[in-house]
Design a protein around this nucleic acid. Structure first.
Lengths: 252, 252
DNA sequence: TCAAATTGTTCTGCAGAGCAAAACGAGGTA
DNA sequence: TACCTCGTTTTGCTCTGCAGAACAATTTGA
């Protein structure tokens, strides 16, 4: 999997950039150089390059990641057909349920959150847009797995494994296969604290035309709120009807 | 302004990445090499590097930008204090007005859209999050200018100029100064097709503590819908009260 | 079905660039 | 004022990013 040859300078630039992105305050050249293990001089040259490209800014002798980075992800997402069809429906799902609703897509056998809408209930999941999350630990992830062909699922499991994230994570391949079967039968998937303790999720896949990658939507929130009929009927119903609306939008 | 020394390899990597980001379909090595003017071999090495970093994916012998790029911008934004305070209020502003509402911040003398919420009315502005827009052509941009000290405004105008984007753009420095004065007096700014023909905007600045960069919120939409009392009283009132709510949130 | 063409990947050699270390300059502090 | 610290620039060396060519793997066309 690890490629043969890489460009060291690019690796170094991204190490510096990612360090800045992760920091909540401006950093100086000396500190960055120590962090990434390069000399002050080169780090300065890299920062100058990133600055000229518009991904880094300087505020009184210190550097910080630019908000211009938002444009890259936003543009990638704009080319995603399912996003244009799903956005307002996911927004609406968050509004009517009050919870956080998401759009996930599959990429290289992992799930990536492509969009997230916040409902009135004030709660924030542990991940943000762009985060890679194993498919077997979230409701939308399992829904996507259930929508894929068996051999593709096997490939993914072979490559990614079934690491446990919490005590509830499904780590047995046969158990997972059984769960995928019931997901296919019911058209809905649940995540009961398998990704994060205290967090419950509901999801369903979006059937896409041709060779587009898998996609799914979901709703998640604190386990204390998502229980009983509210979870299994109200929210589940909203998720399914939202998925139907997106399907309609996609085939227009 | 243009720095002294830059890293060529980094420049090339980003040229390739940006080409992929701008494309709505997967691209091959040969095509990319022709586009950026490098040999096939090096482009392949760069793609391999970007792929290992998680910003590029391969789908049957062609490359495309990864949704993982969303994470970078999202993380930068999460460190923006005003974003956490403003998000739900901007969401709410979009909902009650029905229009698109935005959060802008100033960076290096230009405005960057940091967040955008869509109201029920189906309309999409010409720009997305992360886009850099001159301060003098949008309502939130002018609101931010009005909130800055005079010498800072002069510096920005010296550096960025007052280029015309439409026939309505303010290109005269004295006219702009007069407008900034009335914005300060009224606590509200308008953009009447100065950024994009047929688009009207309303904005007001968010007063921030200490040395944080300027920020402003706004609402924008088609000129056909944003007119008369609806624009100048209803929407304006919602914008101002939203800004007040954000201020309260910020000083908690 | 087979050859020709095209594309992705690897290899080779070298000029140029990335890198560490040191020197320089600009703020800030005691 | 002198010292210290940090950002910036310079120097020289080594290594690597780069072009071009060769190779491999598909696809195309007849």
């Amino acid at each position: 999997m690890t490629g043969t040859t890489t460009v060291d300078a690019t690796m170094n630039s991204f190490r510096i950039l990612e360090r800045l992105v992760a920091s909540d305050e401006a950093l100086g050249v000396t500190e960055l150089a120590a962090d990434v293990g390069l000399s002050k001089g080169v780090v300065h040259t890299h920062l100058n390059t990133l600055s000229e490209l518009g991904y880094v800014t300087k505020r009184d002798r210190k550097y910080l990641a630019s908000m211009g980075l938002l444009a890259l992800g936003e543009e990638v997402r704009s080319h995603l057909g399912v996003f244009a069809a799903a956005r307002q429906h996911v927004d609406n799902l968050a509004r009517v349920t009050g919870e956080v609703s998401t759009l996930f897509v599959e990429e290289d056998g992992v799930g990536i959150c492509a969009y997230m809408a916040h409902g009135p209930n004030d709660w924030e999941p542990a991940y943000a847009c762009g985060t890679r999350i194993p498919l077997h630990i979230t409701a939308p992830g399992k829904a996507m797995l259930a929508s894929l062909g068996r051999e593709r699922v096997d490939d993914i499991l072979d490559e990614r494994g079934l690491d446990a994230q919490t005590a509830e994570t499904i780590t047995d391949r046969n158990v997972l296969r059984g769960e995928l079967r019931t997901i296919r039968e019911n058209g809905i998937s649940f995540c009961r604290e398998e990704q994060s303790a205290g967090v419950i999720g509901v999801g369903t896949s979006i059937a896409l035309t041709e060779r587009a990658p898998a996609a799914a939507i979901g709703v998640c929130g604190p386990a204390s709120r998502l229980t009983g009929r509210y979870l299994e009927e109200d929210i589940t119903g909203q998720v399914i009807s939202t998925a139907k609306s997106i399907q309609v939008e996609l085939t227009r």
